[in-house]
């Protein structure tokens, strides 16, 4: 069965969804990702969905679950490259993605993640400040 590769770059895991993101793959990704986070003690996950062209309520929930799971494992989750149509669909479906960070491009997302990871290692207060700046 197809699986989405998860790449490790330093403290950060990189996931790019480039295949047809159907339900089974999405569930497999959720499982793989949570295991990888624990195994690598990753501090951040960057998910690139710029190739994703369609989303339904189940996908929305899976994305939300990924971010919630990552948060429980003390790992920041950043979603990058969302297409306008996807953003509109998600809001129209009423799906909220609490605790998920978004960035326009992979570059921006990586910067955001490394900033967050860095400030977390420096101390709790600056991390909060960093988050406040981005939210």
């Amino acid at each position: 069965m197809d699986r989405i590769p998860i790449l490790k770059i330093g403290d950060v895991l990189l996931v790019t969804i480039q295949v047809d993101f159907h339900d089974r793959i999405a569930i497999a990704l959720l499982e793989d990702l949570s295991e990888k986070i624990v195994d690598n003690s990753a501090k951040g996950v960057l998910i690139d969905i710029s190739a994703l062209e369609m989303v339904d309520s189940f996908m929305g929930r899976i994305l939300g679950n990924i971010s919630k799971t990552a948060k429980l494992l003390d790992c920041h989750c950043v979603l990058v490259g969302m297409q306008p149509a996807i953003a509109i669909t998600i809001t129209e479906l009423g799906i909220t993605l609490p605790g998920i960070y978004t960035a326009l491009t992979a570059e921006d997302g990586m910067k955001l993640l490394t900033d967050m990871v860095k400030s977390k290692t420096n101390g709790k207060t600056s991390a909060k400040k960093q988050e406040a700046k981005w939210r």
């Binding site: 953003a87 809001t91 909220t96 978004t102």
Partner: peptide
Amino acid sequence: KTVSATRLMG
């Protein structure tokens, strides 16, 4: 709605 869609875009 517009605000949350914009946020999703990053």
